[in-house]
Design a binder for these strands. Sequence first.
DNA 1: TTGTCAATTGTCAGCGACTGACATTAGCCT
DNA 2: AGGCTAATGTCAGTCGCTGACAATTGACAA
Lengths: 219, 219
Amino acid sequence: MATPTPQTAPTGGLRERKKQRTRDALIRAALELFTEQGYDATTVDEIAEVVDVSQRTYFRYFANKEDVAFAVQEMVEARFLEELSARPAAEAPLTALRSAVMVAWDEIGSAIESVIPLELHMRSYQMIESTPALVAVHLRRSSELEEQIARLIARREGLDVDTDPRPRVLVAAFSGVMRVAGKVWGEGQDCSVASIRELTESYLDHIGPAIADDWRSHP
Amino acid sequence: MATPTPQTAPTGGLRERKKQRTRDALIRAALELFTEQGYDATTVDEIAEVVDVSQRTYFRYFANKEDVAFAVQEMVEARFLEELSARPAAEAPLTALRSAVMVAWDEIGSAIESVIPLELHMRSYQMIESTPALVAVHLRRSSELEEQIARLIARREGLDVDTDPRPRVLVAAFSGVMRVAGKVWGEGQDCSVASIRELTESYLDHIGPAIADDWRSHP
DNA sequence: TTGTCAATTGTCAGCGACTGACATTAGCCT
DNA sequence: AGGCTAATGTCAGTCGCTGACAATTGACAA
């Protein structure tokens, strides 16, 4: 109580660095095992053994077996939110979302590399999309992110999310499209960053026309 | 091999009726326990005990603890798909989706009552929305439904889902909006069927305007 | 009715995810 | 060096879930 708020050493301590290393090692080991032998065929004990820690320690870093698969995604999402907050207020909502995604895709690469090889991350993404248990978690996480995005958009436009349905509706539509783009990408061959960037861009361009009623007159 | 395909009695057998009764009893018991004490606080053994069957038998009817919570939803979804297939080809895609939802909402009530009280189903829906593990499963199920809907829409319009992105994009946007409507309803007070019907209708009306760029000029 | 066949269920053993409790180790700070 | 506390290991136990095998029970023909 009387301590000057020591607060677990800001950054410099050996302890902190060691913890970070263990965490990164767990992520790397987990993703490697998941992508090689499959998620279900991998046990938490295996992951812990590779990193040479006890199973109990794994569960002190990650709440469950699934969470470790999304540790990198979490970084990406945080990056996207930052980018969205930084978009000029003059941009229309959908435009701001689109721009933020594009900028984020260009910048996250290096951030990811600091934890795991980018190629491993790409393979992990596809692994998630083809593992029912992880698809479910991924969707839930996405919907939580949507709520945050909706609130950001509402703030930009000076609206209240609980009164005006447009922020949530727009974000719901936007996210749905993003998800489909990611899914289609995962099913395709080209697993490069450029590929998903293009696909995303193309799909976002279709959102307007798809809502319009007369598909037959605009083929 | 030489048998004239007996195939587990079409409908009339005592065996079939008994199975159906057990299944319904499991659903009812599970939903009652889930809504009363919470999903996590309920064990599969408890559910089985109420129905007076072994835990093993429960798992012969449902693949896991989560599935039983969505047994009724499954009926509703099947009903919606039927309704959508029956919409006249002249209707525009988004219009057909909207109409199918509305008609489905008006008709499923009685079908649900044949298994569990409608009020229990409504409470279950809110229970699902407030249980992270179930939210995840719900979203995954929804996304699988989306794929089916997209293919239906594509067929209506004579398109190929793998070539033309519009069916999936539209359905993604549509489903996102539906989900938000359901979520907002779950958080509100009025848990009647009429209430969710109206909310859905209203939210679907906003999808067009929300995509448009100039929110500030149309408050 | 009775006996045979197949479907349903119960029992049991066991794995893997996860958690609380407590002992042990190891960075940190004076 | 020595005490403090955070991080880790160990252990026991619960719960979800599954395979294997035995017991029961409806279905159907002789």
